[in-house]
Design a binder for these strands. Structure first.
Lengths: 352, 352
DNA sequence: TTGAAAGCGCTAACAT
DNA sequence: ATGTTAGCGCTTTCAA
């Protein structure tokens, strides 16, 4: 067992040991020996020594000198419900061949934490940032902009920045599919459960829900709309929603659209626990088509969110902004349009 | 809207602008002004200028100079099934107050990717690494050791390193609980579905499974044991397992223990799709108590894995190794002992 | 109470 | 085909 040396080997040490200059070592170690015509013998000696002494290049020094980090900061909301899994898989496909490395962190819906993570990205001089926005971080966004570090927002975008770059699912269009499905299966008291925060897509989703009801001539009862603060945990939101939507002695909704499948599965579970039958008493439709929804025991109706594609497109947008820093805002709203009818709305549904 | 400057502001520029020396600026910006007795006026001017010019310290330069990064590399298998969510939440609790930042990446069970991520940690001079081990990476582990960067393995440990640091759940002890439960509810043809890879805990789990059967005088039929390569996707493993365990015309197991709840939920779903009743035809018990198992529609019996605690303890171990680099191996096997009896083994179970 | 100077490890322009 | 040199941005003595 080799005993750990006091410190990792440097190019200077390698050079000294071989009696050559550090630059030659640097050239060889970066694979430039061909272009710079380093003799085969020297190349061999350098590689040999590097292997023997376990040389590992120092990224800080390299970044400092080259004035670029090759890192892309990625700040997500959480690792729950496999959303991060699908998104990062999509991103990885794009980044793989580019030499850029994503650096993933989560803000857990806490503004302070998000601000801290964002600052970390800036301090590390990440070349671009991909993030799930949170309200109240305008100062932090502004700092990034002032440093010339582009931010690509995913899932939604800050309502305060009209020219923000973003890649998101056109969920307002697809929530229409969801609500129309509920109307079509004969539901008339259609409720809404979700988050309440001031961002364009979130607002648009709620508007879309209302507009479908309006056009269908169905009532929009505030008692059937439960929108909780993002600062609450999903569990808390569900608890409050249940308390509000199913007040004893009050007519409860006969169908509910839920902001995303994570919430929807929690709601489904809570509803069943309360002895309310799904879909007999109340039909349930989520959004996202998260993996969990497909399980036979869950079989949650939903609309598909192209998560991996959002990841790919966000990654592409980031790369694009790196090669063309000054360009009009990249604002992509990905359509999807895949309604997944399962047991929580139609008992016998195939669930594809 | 401020136009982005060509490059971020440096301490030298700040100093030049204020007509003072960079060292004074540095002292103030690191909050050392008290100790170093910088005049209140100077302090104020520096902070003011930093704010105005949007100064953000350059982490590379700082790290390079101080010879420490404050970063802990974390390499997990994937972001699926909320395992990463719980683990990183546990770690964050410990790291929060320390100034260390975890840097999360995943290897997706691909040795090449794991090697690459590990090398990234070394190049970044992460001060410690916490990782889910993968077989065949001994060379990479050795490089870390040679550089004096401690690795804390989680979930299992490389069988080749007797003195590796690790924090894991004592799953072999708890798989006994699972199998004994199956025996107790009268099952006699108890199968096993999991991964096949050469690591101590994985081997011990399988041995524990066998030993319970042996002691109960039950048969151990190789046709009922399906252990797939880690290189296969969970979906592939399940597909192969089903094909093997439920061969037409052959007696199939009447109960199955599954390596972890992610696999188990997939298996549960596949089994139901094949028209096999759970638990009537076959009982199912997983391991981990992942969030998904608790849903009414899934209600998977399982044994609890203290994931957040593994995260906390691994983080503590890493910090411990940073303050006391030379010490006997930290090898923690966390007991848990919580059997969760739900519907996939006992139809009426409460499922707590 | 502040400044000058050196240097962390690496790279790239410019010499030879 | 290889070496010299300067410097990326910051921190830390040491000196004033």
């Amino acid at each position: 067992m080799a005993k750990p040396p006091s410190h990792p080997v440097t190019t200077v040490e390698l050079a000294a040991r071989l009696g050559i200059s550090p630059s030659t070592v640097s050239i060889v170690l970066r694979g430039q020996s061909e272009r710079r015509k380093i003799s085969a013998r020297t190349v061999e000696r350098v590689l040999q020594a590097a292997r023997e002494l376990n040389y590992v290049p120092n990224q800080w020094a390299r970044n400092l000198r080259r004035q670029k980090s090759g890192m892309i900061g990625v700040i997500l909301a959480s690792f729950r419900w496999d959303w991060a899994q699908e998104l990062t898989t999509g991103m990885a496909e794009v980044f793989e061949s580019t030499g850029y490395t994503p650096f993933v962190a989560v803000h857990a819906y806490q503004p302070e934490r998000a601000r801290r993570e964002l600052l970390s990205c800036l301090q590390r001089r990440d070349e671009a940032i991909i993030m799930v926005p949170l309200p109240g971080l305008d100062d932090a966004y502004e700092r990034a902009r002032a440093m010339g570090i582009p931010i690509v927002f995913v899932a939604d975008r800050p309502s305060t920045l009209a020219d923000a770059h973003f890649v998101a699912w056109d969920s307002p269009a697809d929530i229409k599919l969801a609500v129309e499905h509920l109307v079509q299966i004969g539901r008339r008291r259609i409720g809404f459960v979700g988050f309440d925060y001031p961002m364009p897509l979130n607002a648009a989703r709620y508007r879309a829900y209302r507009s479908v009801l309006q056009r269908a001539g169905l009532p929009i009862d505030p008692r059937w709309v439960a929108r909780g603060s993002m600062l609450l945990s999903p569990e808390e939101i569900i608890e409050k929603s249940i308390a509000q939507l199913f007040q004893p002695g009050q007519p409860h909704p006969d169908a509910i659209v839920v902001q995303h499948d994570g919430l929807a599965t929690l709601l489904l579970d809570a509803i069943r626990t309360h002895g309310i039958r799904v879909p007999d008493d109340v039909a349930l439709i989520g959004m996202g088509d998260y993996p969990i929804t497909r399980f036979a025991g869950v079989s949650l109706s939903t609309v598909k969110e192209p998560i991996a594609e959002i990841g790919r497109e966000a990654a592409k947008a980031a790369l694009d902004l790196l090669s063309h820093p000054t360009q009009p805002p990249i604002q992509r709203l990905l359509p999807c349009g895949e309604l997944k009818i399962r047991h929580t709305t139609v008992p016998g549904a195939s669930g594809a």
